[in-house]
Design a protein around this nucleic acid. Structure first.
Lengths: 113, 113
DNA sequence: TACTTATTTGCATGATTGCGCACACGTGCT
DNA sequence: AGCACGTGTGCGCAATCATGCAAATAAGTA
């Protein structure tokens, strides 16, 4: 069975990692700027602080951060009247590496194996 | 200088890897299906063959493949009246890993260093 | 309570996008 | 030349989206 389902197996694994929502969330320049800002920050950032990286209205930044949070890319923690946003670099890096692994495993399984 | 520009350095490196076009190209379900199809294929696929993975009109698939090619994700090779599309899994995997590295390097530089 | 600050949300608008359809272009065959 | 096939393109439509503005909500302070 392993031999006959090689292609479909790798496709299944690959498609599990090909999350459209992740790439949609990262497919916007403003959101990428926010991600870079969060990644380079020493700690959590408020909406106002995060907004410094892009010439977008604060309300737009709030919406973008909500979208990133909704996509599971960042986490929010309410503290008083502020909201602290954090990016888990390690988690995102792991997700990207998993996808990279799935891609190459697929290739290896279909072309070599 | 290295110490004072730590944060901006990692941001620069990171932003170089945060290509919006790449994620825009991967932010569509049909295009992701095409990528998975190309990744699991033993060799190059024609437009008609690639279109089998998604219930989208052939013209739409042609446009999607052109978009992926334009984003540098896949390569096209004309052969007679057909066009063979190929996905360089290794290149894409490397790009994803580079981004993962940049993310973690940024984090390390800002929080630990 | 009144006031300031931080964030979110409703709304309108302009721009982008995915799609199917019809047609054009290029190629191979008879 | 005539025809069939594979692919790309112009066009219009519907849906989504990013944005700014203004108002609303929530929280701290005088």
């Amino acid at each position: 069975m392993a031999k006959t389902t090689r292609a479909s197996e790798c496709t299944t694994t690959l498609e599990a990692h090909l999350n459209p929502e992740l790439f949609k969330a990262m497919g916007d320049e403003t959101r990428l700027a926010l991600i870079a800002r969060l990644a380079s920050a020493a700690g959590p950032l408020t909406v106002t602080e995060a907004a410094e990286c892009c010439g977008v209205h604060l309300s737009g930044v709030s919406r973008h951060l909500a979208a990133l949070k909704n996509a599971g890319l960042i986490a929010a923690q309410k503290e008083g009247r502020e909201v602290r946003y954090t990016l888990d670099c390690g988690a995102l890096a792991s997700a990207l590496r998993d996808l990279a692994d799935a891609l190459e495993a697929c290739k290896a399984g279909c072309c070599d194996g």
